[in-house]
Design a protein around this nucleic acid. Structure first.
Lengths: 212, 212
DNA sequence: GAAAGAATTGTTACTCGGTTGCACTTTTGG
DNA sequence: CCAAAAGTGCAACCGAGTAACAATTCTTTC
């Protein structure tokens, strides 16, 4: 019996956590320094002092070495909808949450000060295979959101698809503005405005915007 | 200076066309028979009587062997918007076009009788790497559509993203119904109804559908 | 605390997608 | 007919990912 409550983590379990962490850290450091596809998985494995097969026992693909942190965010939209206060619509909850994430400079919004995070985003948006993997994560997110939205399945699925897509585009737009060299403080107000625009569009539809 | 107009195909050019066709045909036949990832590019090259490097001179990646026909459809949404009759809104034009494609059992709608096309769709939707490639094609489509829509860039981009996404989901839903064994004639009316629902949603927004 | 048992790891070797360098053949243009 | 250009095949290579099996490390049980 060891001390305390935190459940006996078990030595083996702790070692696995450490290996996983070492792999992730080594990978991200190397990727940011040399670029995703100029670093081989063998390099990463060597840097973390494990063999290549072991690396793949922890991360099913090279892309996951870079993305697993994002992957852990999965189901966030669904959670926001599920945990919204009584009387608030899902859309309103999501809008508020996105604004909050914006103010927190959350990486998922595409806005971010830290040079490390910036470099990470640059890598993300300029590496096709990472983008592809991100899409797969997003589609899982979409499923969960559709479920959380409830209502008739076709409507919920369409709505979820639109919402997830819009989030992606908002983040992409923010990133684009940062890439052009503008400081975050300058872009933030526009990001809020874009988000409002996007949610207005989601809420009231495209109909007044593109007439004959 | 080459000879005049587009006329003289040139022997060399004709040979290239034939090689390209042979590769595509061999690839699709093999993929449909054995499954995309149980066929190696070496197999395809051998079946088309070319070497592996030559194959990659024609198709930049294995996925393109399966998808280049779809790729050729690119910019269709943008074209529909650009060529719409006077006084008709882009959304109305796209809606009408989608219904027409549905009646034509166009593969892009996910509906289709031909067993060959059905098998192709099954392969598409169950092979992650193909889906990923498809997403990349779609994002090009989205760009072109945004351009065709005109208006303020942020709005156009958001609208284009939503429209493209909705098309994908409609096609996916149709395919899902076919997979469950139902005949096309049975699914078609629902497909039209889903399309109308989706376009209504796009036009008038999500706002009445998910209240507090 | 030691032995039986399970889980994890390293090594080696392999498959497959994709690329490179170079020699060889074919088409083209004069 | 000849030379430049374009296209091809060959062989060797790189990197991602997997399989087999032996060696090691943790857990469990007595």
């Amino acid at each position: 019996m060891t001390t305390g409550e935190t459940a006996t983590t078990g030595l083996r379990e702790r070692k696995k956590q450490r290996t996983r962490q070492a792999l992730s850290d080594a990978a991200i450091a190397l990727f940011l320094e040399h670029g995703f596809d100029r670093v081989s998985v063998a390099d990463v494995a060597a840097a973390a002092d494990v063999s290549k097969p072991t690396l793949f026992r922890y991360f099913p693909a090279k892309e996951d070495l870079a993305l697993h942190r994002i992957a852990d965010h999965q189901g966030e939209a669904a959670r926001v909808v599920r945990d919204r206060p009584d009387g608030r619509s899902p859309l309103a909850a999501l809008r508020a949450h996105f604004h909050a994430r914006l103010d927190a400079h959350d990486p998922v919004t595409g806005l971010s000060d830290h040079p490390g995070v910036r470099a990470f985003h640059d890598m993300l948006y300029t590496t096709p295979s990472l983008l592809a993997r991100l899409v797969r994560y997003a589609s899982r997110d979409e499923e969960l959101l559709a479920e959380a939205l409830g209502g008739p399945a076709p409507v919920a699925r369409l709505a979820a698809a639109q919402i997830v897509t819009v989030h992606q585009r908002l983040a992409q737009e923010n990133w684009r503005k940062l890439v052009s060299g503008r400081p975050v403080t300058d872009v933030l107000p526009e990001a809020h405005a874009d988000a409002d625009l996007a949610y207005d569009l989601l809420g009231t539809g495209l109909d007044g915007h593109f007439e004959g």
